[in-house]
Design a binder for these strands. Structure first.
Lengths: 259, 259
DNA sequence: CAGATTCATTGACTGGGATCAAATTTCACC
DNA sequence: GGTGAAATTTGATCCCAGTCAATGAATCTG
């Protein structure tokens, strides 16, 4: 049995898990839904073959027909620039909804790529909308998830607009830590499924800067890093580094602060 | 009749305009709705007293109960940092929906401030959700508007993550130009309702940098600026400056590009 | 398992934009 | 219409993070 077959077995096992039995249900679309409603949701969800690392879930310009719930693994979203660059706009962990950006013009404006072997549930959007019209709880939860997307983007904007390199990386680590914790994983030790390049891109920093910061933070004893594995050694100190600062002596105006 | 009274007369006149007679209907919630549906929407919308420059529509932490449609004037949204700074996350023009960010936790995480005398329609969210459940077209339009918000934020992220100061300002001007044009105003001459400080904050630049860039662009003849009034003299050249670049000689990898 | 390719780290150097400072203009409010 | 506060502009200087370069570690491929 080679690697490929292994994946299949694991994934088929996962595919059988219905919403009502899914450990992610409390983070996902069915939050607060009744048993009956969950079964109706179950009925429209398609289980998909898992993606392998680097495979696209969809690309910029693809026609929009479904949103996707990450079941295991992780996904990055990227928007392309006019010139061939791209900006990573987010990383998506299990229980999170991917593809919401596309509703506006029925076309994906950002691409989604698996960062590791990743399985998810596909939810055809027209059917989801129709069901949401009948099930107020589902509609509400959809709105909350979309709104959370906006909230995340605003935090991200704040990061790029107002924080320096160190604050960005530390904030990134703390945020990841919180998200892992919510999902029942350790808050102080986790694996980064994305490359240094992805992190730098997401944070608006050069790869070299990310690497230097990891080294420096490790030297200071705040964290320890071994390849993709990160441990937060002094979460409190990290929280300080992330932005809580001694008050400015004279905060009468914008002066003395970053734009 | 002083300035104050003038405002009142104008606003009262505006207040009478129902959705079915509103010139913004094609940009706003009622897009594609039937006459009957528009009347139902009309029934739940509250007209509000216009805000004056600097007044808050809502503040960070306020309880969420309504979303708002800008009718005339303009609004900025800001998220606060831990330390007392803030990041401007967007400017909202007539026909745009404000307050969508708050659905997630039933509380506004960003504040909204009028940049000039601004009138809008208030739409109580529970009633909007309930109506959307009955009117598929309205539900769809709501989703599109929320999705557009995400799309805008992604463009903004791309701006802060990948563009230099000049590209940011020029892109900002072009985007504004397009939005004014959609609303039936001139695409080449418009008034900036926000301060240089707001622009800098939005673009992740210092006020001084924004000012210098305006001066430089004017010196190059691309634009002319007089206080708040901007004219785009050479839209084509601006589009070049915004990002369309001669191709890199050897784009084999990420090297030679910004992170 | 060897070679190739991508990814990560480290060092040296540079420059774009922030910061500091100050003059000038604009605007809001009596 | 005058006055004080706020906004804008301009100049001088500095520094953080980007760029370039090179080496080393990890991972893919046949």
């Amino acid at each position: 049995m080679d690697r490929n077959d292994m994946d299949k077995v694991v994934s088929l096992k996962r595919l059988k898990v219905a919403c009502r039995a899914c450990s992610l249900a409390q983070l996902c679309l069915p939050v607060g839904a009744s048993r009956d409603d969950i079964e109706r949701l179950d009925a429209i969800i398609k289980r998909r073959r898992p993606l392998r690392r680097g495979e696209h879930l969809y690309r910029t310009g693809d026609r929009f027909h479904s949103v996707y719930l990450v079941r295991s693994g992780s996904i990055k979203s990227c928007v392309p620039t006019d010139r061939g660059q791209e900006q990573v706009t987010g990383f998506h962990l299990p229980g999170e909804l991917v593809g919401l950006d596309a509703i506006h013009v029925e076309e994906h404006h950002c691409g989604a790529v698996a960062l590791e072997t990743t399985s998810m549930c596909e939810v055809p959007f027209p059917q989801l909308e129709s069901l949401a019209g009948q099930v107020p709880g589902l509609q509400r939860q959809m709105h909350r998830l979309m709104s959370r997307e906006v909230l995340r983007d605003h935090e991200h904007l704040l990061m790029l607009g107002k924080r320096n390199a160190e604050e960005r990386l530390v904030t990134f680590l703390i945020t990841l830590s919180n998200r892992f914790h919510e999902r029942g994983y350790s808050a102080v030790e986790f694996r980064l499924s994305m490359s240094r390049g992805d992190i730098g891109n997401y944070l608006g920093l050069a790869v070299e800067t990310v690497s230097r910061l990891f080294t420096r933070l490790q030297g200071q004893g705040c964290i320890s890093v071994d390849r993709k594995l990160v441990q937060l050694r002094e979460p409190e100190r990290l929280r300080m580094l992330a932005g809580v600062r001694p008050l400015e002596p004279d905060p009468r105006s914008y002066h003395g602060q970053r734009s």
